[in-house]
């Protein structure tokens, strides 16, 4: 991929090398800081190298910020902070798509008693809220964005600051919150997946979940699997390996803090039986 702007660095994360380039040195430096913050320790930046097969270009043109992906126009914006935030999410998405040794699932993820719990969902479905509630109860923070699985079915941490939204309508705000600010701890070790919870939030609901078979669970999860379109074979294989022994639940949940407590209590009460409390979960 040819470099089109004067200033550049190469970043590497999960085996994906991307060149970030700009016509403005300050904008590039801000982009690097922004990426370091979001990728936490999962990022290496090489300032003296320019060789990478994937690239993002950041152009400052008058008062406009223009984003290019692999030298093609992608989007533009007028507020630097918002532009960099969006650039960051697109870069993370690119890493998630091309990571050679890992498959990224759009999901919240925590660790509990040697297993990880993941919650695949689209944006605005409460992943971060549920993740933060579980972390407040003592679960290790893995990610509020991606579950990252390898060939052995282990889920790796991707512990970016939690993206917590507060308020509604005009008062809606989004804050990037380090896990330590909610008194949480980031997980370090990759863990096997013990539970998959596919839910939507309904404030009127007390919780209504049913258990899926492994195949049904994989079907529901692949919709949230980032590289699926590019590499369905590897994605399916890793999904099978990682979900093979997991309990997979789908349905409606109510309040995140109540639900988080119920989930952890059920797991604690049934750690040895690989079964869940019938009083909460309808099983077939």
């Amino acid at each position: 991929m040819d470099q089109i702007f004067e200033f550049a660095f190469v970043m590497e994360s999960f085996g994906v090398r991307l060149r970030i380039e700009s016509n403005d040195e300050t904008l590039l430096a801000d982009a690097a800081e922004n990426l370091r913050w979001a990728f936490a320790e999962k990022l290496n930046i090489y300032e003296d190298e320019g060789d990478a097969s994937l690239s993002f270009g950041l152009e400052l043109k008058g008062s406009e910020f223009i984003l290019y992906r692999d030298n093609e126009y992608f989007t533009k914006g007028e507020i630097k902070r918002i532009f960099l935030k969006y650039m960051n999410s697109v870069v993370r998405n690119r890493v998630a798509e091309f990571a050679p040794e890992h498959t990224f699932i759009h999901a919240g993820s925590v660790g509990w008693k040697g297993r990880s719990l993941i919650f695949p969902a689209k944006s605005f479905k409460g992943k971060s809220t549920l993740t933060s509630e579980l972390v407040k109860l003592g679960a290790d923070y893995y990610s509020d964005e991606y579950a990252v699985i390898d060939d052995n079915g282990l889920n790796h941490p991707f512990p970016r600051p939690l993206s917590l939204r507060t308020g509604e309508g005009k008062d809606l705000r989004e804050n990037e919150v380090p896990v330590t600010e909610i008194n949480g701890v980031a997980g370090i070790e990759p863990l096997p997946i013990g539970m998959v919870i596919i839910t939507e939030y309904d404030p009127e609901s007390d919780g209504d979940l049913s258990q899926l078979t492994t195949g049904e669970g994989i079907l529901e999860t692949l919709v949230h699997t980032i590289p699926f379109a590019r590499d369905p074979k590897t994605s399916l294989k890793r999904l099978k390996t990682s979900l093979n022994r997991a309990i997979i639940l789908k349905g409606i949940r109510g309040d995140a803090s109540d639900f988080a407590l119920t989930v952890l209590s059920n797991i604690d009460n049934n750690l040895d039986s690989n079964d869940l409390d019938e009083s909460f979960f309808w099983r077939r």
Binding site: F65, Y86, E220, F228
Partner: peptide, 23 residues
Amino acid sequence: VASLAAPQNALANLSCGCTTSAN
């Protein structure tokens, strides 16, 4: 036989963010 449409590209799961009202 249960069926679902698979994501057509990696961006399908991108968070819905914006930089201008045009996007």
